[in-house]
Amino acid sequence: MTILKNHDTKGVAFVDDAKLTARHVNVFYGDKQAIFDVSLDVGANEVIALIGPSGCGKSTFLRCLNRMNDTIDRCQVQGDILLDGEPIYDGSMDVVPLRARVGMVFQKPNPFPKSIYDNVAYGPRLHGLATTRVELDAIVEYSLQRAGLWNEVKDRLDAPGTGLSGGQQQRLCIARTIAVDPEVILMDEPCSALDPIATAKIEELIDELRENYTIAIVTHSMQQAARVSQRTAYFHMGQLVEVNPTEQMFTTPEHTLTEAYITGRFG
């Protein structure tokens, strides 16, 4: 296996209508560096997939994009990340509105121990998005519908969210994110804890969401990347090795590491 030496990313890391722009990002956990000089654009209304062997820093990079890494004391982020041209690690940027604009769905479904309704209404209530109960009801219904969950739960909105099946829980978490009306949705292996049928539903959903939202999804399944994304970024040991349109990446990878990964020689 070739050891990665140069930091040059193969392929096309930059786009014209960038929603999120990352430049020379380095991330450290204490003394240990997890991300090495990564530069990448996420275009508006596209789905970009982040792939790579486990431990290569996909989650770490994703969590930089809405400053979720702030919650880890020892984590330090260097470099520039811009949302619509605004630097998000700037002192003047408040994480609260940032995270309202850049939502996140996690690997393991994590509904709050509240009713389905309250799970979805949680964000709008925090941010004061609805002034009346009617408005709030509308937001909840819309979000659940966008997440494809409305028909399954509309009769039991008062039931606890934790009582749903795994796939439903994950769609509830997506609905919860949509309810805040974000611009970007980050997804960290959203299907890894789900069965194939639930996975298919979520993948379908991601495809639909693309028209309104910019989506960055971490996945370790190449098939999933192929099915849902337009562009794919391949990470290896904290470095961004290659970024290309998904089809091209899976047919004619530029970098030998990418090829090795895609053909299943490691992962």
């Binding site: 919650t71 509105p97 996690f106 994590n110 709050f112 925090l126 919860r176």
Partner: peptide, 17 residues
């Protein structure tokens, strides 16, 4: 579990929220 805190933080909740 930390995952619940993460879920809330990711929605833009302040710490006390």
């Amino acid at each position: 579990p930390q995952s619940l805190r993460d879920g809330s933080d990711a929605l833009g909740a302040t710490r006390n929220e």
